[in-house]
Design a protein around this nucleic acid. Structure first.
Length: 814
RNA sequence: GCCGAAGUGGCGGAAUUGGUAGACGCACCGGACUCAAAAUCCGGCGCCUGAAAGGGCGUGGGGGUUCGAUUCCCCCCUUCGGCACCA
């Protein structure tokens, strides 16, 4: 036998990567204005852009290989596919690295970008490099600032003093979404409560749209939608106005149980409630109450939640609007200022927390709803509410079912101006200002006479000044750049100061997927017709960790951009795929644990194709997977086998494959691979299917369909392993594989002409018969009954029932 | 506590609409080739029982529906994820 070149992934991969780079094979130009409505098949595939940490990790490899498979498949189906890449370049890691090294964050970031770009090329991903963007580039953040100003003009970005979460380690405030179990999402430090003046986006104005417009999404994982729903936390209830006895001052509360109003036996204010100090001023309770408020503010969130419920009496009373009854007003930290009105009516008979509190302080418990027909137990009984209950002890409302009572009581209050139906949300406004250097400057000027003034558009971008001391000190390091801070007011021309906080990086990443469509635009963030042509994103791919961060913010941004007339779509991402996490030894990979697996290391040993295939072969891409390096061997063997078979078959004439078993297998494989990737988003099962096909070819290399089957296998594996597939194709097929049409299965050949039929007796498999697929049910039943193995179990017993499923089985009951 | 997802050989996993459980791969065992090794190829590989043919059991546990259940229903256990003093 002639000697054959060995499979040498390093040489092959370098060769094809050079071709793709030189020819810009994956560059997709925007359509001309006249082509926008051409009805041409197009698709927009975006993967969450990487934070340029310098090293490509397994998460990137999985993410971008999924995107690559989707992209190649769509492209070869004749669809014009946009698939760009960029860098989420602002943020703490680069800044912290720079502080450690003594360099500038920009230097560190740009070095990392160069490195990660190089590694992406090395993996052979089919990216349109002509649209590369980076969020730290003034040409990009100019438009982040421009968008901020549009939000600001509409009152959707505002500054206020509020209780906020502060990370003592990162020396900056955090958004609610960045606090996990009372800790900083990034560094794990326990967050502190502070009251500071900060910038917010009014995302709460969009709570209903963020919930209701989930209907516009084509296909998102249910778990992400559930997390967003939980996060927004919409609940229907009522606003009921109590008043302070004596002063008449209004004390509105939010409740989901207005039917229990007659059971309110006390009233509670959050310690941060603005009326607390006023209520106790000059009374004997003042010292104790103010002391309690001080102690509470020193407690962390976690501490507050875990300790036993406590509180103090203010000495004042609130008037219950349903019966005029005065009830004592307490201050307790189990009531949160951030939800509802920061005040509650407490109904200890029907709320566990209120009950615990009442027990501790000896407050009355008054039952006001009970299961229908049940006579009232002695006073003080605690009843958890159940499905069907009627009111008791509630004056004119006694006997009414709870749901009806809710409406009637609120209607009654509304008539007196003391209540209304309303909706409560858990979602808070998005706190986006940060006291750090390496972020997008907020384009605002503070003028002693004009107040807060937006920077005029023609002065954008407000560039981040170069400063040497970027370490955080609890206020923005930018404040130290005096030449930069000192400016003139655009309105009055007088001396003024620049805003020194920077934006959260989640602002940068809330619109980048639109910038890709028009990355060089110097007039606008993007051209509306072009953006409308490509968006919404047909396939968005990324990690689950952004379920309520980036994915919620980006949806909010797009809704506002839509209302600003910048685009006509309401949702950014039609379909979302969340890939699982790749762990090492069952644990999340991290530098501190020293268990980081570097894909490039394995690409150096086996080639990028093997690494790409293996990351997808490990398991379902949307589940977590543990990295087992020895599994790579199986993929390596498979590619070597494909290589050998490809070269063997290349020496044979390409005759008629016929309609034999191997030809049929090839067609079935085409159908399965296409369906699995396209419809099921199953990326690992197609690999197994192609392996099966290759195993079959190996068993019968002289089959008339062997060459066709080999071409098919190479063609089907191309989206996963584009280099080796291309190389084999160059000796086996015509043209360039990445430009070849995706194979189509021949429907008649998908049907087997002979099938295996299972015969069950009383539910147990007793025989398997090979029969013609076209056999009719009667003949099949006769054949089954004729089987010796079957007869051994039927054995003269009475046949009670027979079931024949054509092409599958015969089931006999005796 | 509430919500969601999952539990299948030694391991990763497959079984798409209720119809052959364990595809494909790893590991392991045996064989061929080789002076030998590597590579490659062929075969075996759920558990129990049996010389074999076969038989029994088997998809976290228990029940149910069905001719037939990994798949549907009920109860329970475990793991993971989210939310959590949200009134």
């Amino acid at each position: 036998m002639e000697t054959m070149e060995r499979y040498d992934p390093q040489a092959i991969e370098a060769k094809w990567q050079k071709v793709w780079a030189d020819e810009q094979s994956f560059h997709v130009p925007n359509p001309e204005p006249s082509e926008l409505a051409s009805g041409r098949l197009k698709s927009y595939v975006v993967e969450m852009l990487p934070y340029p940490s310098g090293d490509l990790h397994m998460g990137h490899t999985l993410n971008y290989t999924i995107g690559d498979v989707s992209t190649h498949l769509r492209r070869r189906k004749g669809i014009q596919v946009l698939r760009p890449m960029g860098y989420d370049a602002f943020g703490l890691p680069a800044e912290n690295a720079a502080i450690k090294e003594g360099g500038h964050p920009r230097t560190v970031t740009e070095r990392n970008i160069a490195s990660i770009r190089e590694q992406m090329h090395r993996m052979g991903w089919a990216i349109d490099w002509g649209r590369e963007i980076s969020t730290h580039d003034p040409a990009y953040y100019r438009w982040t600032q421009w968008l901020f100003l549009r939000f600001y003009e509409r009152g959707l970005a505002y500054r206020k003093e509020a209780p906020v979460k502060w990370c003592p380690n990162d020396q900056t405030v955090l958004a609610n979404e960045q606090v996990v179990d009372g800790r900083c999402e990034r560094c794990g430090a326990e967050v502190e409560a502070k009251s500071l003046t900060q910038w917010f986006f009014r995302i709460t104005d969009y709570a209903d749209e963020l919930l209701d417009e989930m209907d516009l999404l084509e296909d998102w994982p249910e778990r992400v939608l559930t997390m967003q729903r939980n996060w927004i936390g919409r609940s229907a209830g009522a606003r009921v106005v109590f008043s302070v006895e004596g002063s008449g001052e209004e004390l509105p509360v939010f409740t989901t149980r207005p039917d229990t109003l007659f059971g309110a036996t006390f009233f509670v204010l959050a310690p941060e409630h603005p009326l607390v100090a006023e209520l106790v001023e000059g009374t004997e309770h003042a010292v104790e109450v103010l002391d309690y408020v001080r102690r509470t503010s020193a407690r962390s969130e976690v501490e507050r939640a875990e300790k036993e419920k406590d509180g103090v009496f203010t000495g004042r009373f609130a008037v219950n609007p349903v019966n005029g009854e005065p009830i004592p007003i307490w201050v307790a930290d189990y009531v949160l200022m951030g939800y509802g009105t920061g005040a509650i009516m407490a109904v200890p008979a029907h709320d566990e927390r209120d009950h615990a509190f009442a027990e501790r302080y000896g407050i009355d418990v008054r039952q006001v709803v009970a299961p229908e027909g049940v006579s009232l137990p002695e006073s003080g009984a605690y009843v958890a509410h159940s499905a069907s209950e009627v009111l008791v002890n509630s004056g004119a409302f006694d006997g009414l079912p709870s749901p009806e009572a809710k409406e009637r009581i609120v209607a009654d209050l509304a008539a007196r101006g003391l209540g209304e139906q309303t909706i409560g949300y858990r979602l808070r406004d998005w706190l986006f200002s940060r006291q750090r250097y390496w972020g997008c400057p907020i384009p605002i000027i503070h003028c002693p006479s004009c107040g807060e003034v937006g920077v005029p558009d023609d002065q954008l971008p407000i560039e981040l000044p170069d400063i040497t001391e970027v370490a955080p000190k609890g206020r923005s390091p930018l404040a130290a750049a005096e030449d930069w801070v000192q400016t003139t007011c655009p309105t009055c021309g007088g001396p003024a100061l620049r805003e020194t906080d920077t934006m959260d990086t989640f602002v940068d990443s809330s619109w980048y997927f639109i910038r890709y469509t028009d990355p060089a635009n110097t007039e606008l963030p993007f051209d509306r017709p072009i953006a409308d042509y490509w968006l919404p994103v047909n396939q968005y791919i990324g990690g689950i960790e952004h379920a309520v961060l980036h994915l919620l913010y980006a949806r909010f941004f797009v809704k506002v951009m839509n209302e600003l007339g910048l685009c006509s779509f309401r949702e950014p991402f039609a379909r979302l795929f969340n890939q699982g996490m790749i762990t090492a030894g069952g644990a999340k990979m991290s530098k501190s644990k020293g268990n980081v697996v570097n894909p490039l290391e394995f690409a150096g040993r086996y080639g990028a194709d093997t690494v790409r295939l293996y990351t997808l072969f490990m398991g379902p891409a949307d589940e977590d997977m543990d990295w087992q390096a020895n599994g790579l061997e199986g993929i390596w063997r498979f590619l070597n086998r494909l290589w050998r078979i490809g070269h063997e078959q290349a020496g044979k004439p390409a005759g008629d494959p016929g309609t034999g078993a191997l030809a049929r297998k090839a067609h079935r494989t085409i159908a399965k691979v296409t369906d699995d990737i396209d419809r099921r988003f199953s990326f690992h099962t197609p690999i197994a299917a192609v392996m099966e096909l290759v195993n079959d070819i190996q068993r019968s290399p002289a089959d008339p369909a062997a060459r066709f089957a080999t071409e098919t296998a190479v063609s089907l594996i191309q989206p996963y392993a584009p280099h080796v597939a291309e190389e084999i194709w160059s000796v086996l097929g015509e043209g360039r594989l990445w430009e070849r049409p995706w194979p189509e299965a021949d429907a008649p050949l998908l049907v087997e002409d002979e099938v295996e039929i299972v015969v069950q007796v009383n539910g147990k498999v007793r025989d398997r018969l090979r029969v013609a697929a076209a056999i009719d049910d009667e003949a099949l039943l006769a054949l089954a009954l004729a089987s010796e193995k079957v007869q051994a179990h039927v054995d003269g017993k009475e046949l009670r029932k027979t079931v024949v499923v054509s092409g599958r089985l015969v089931s006999l009951v005796v």
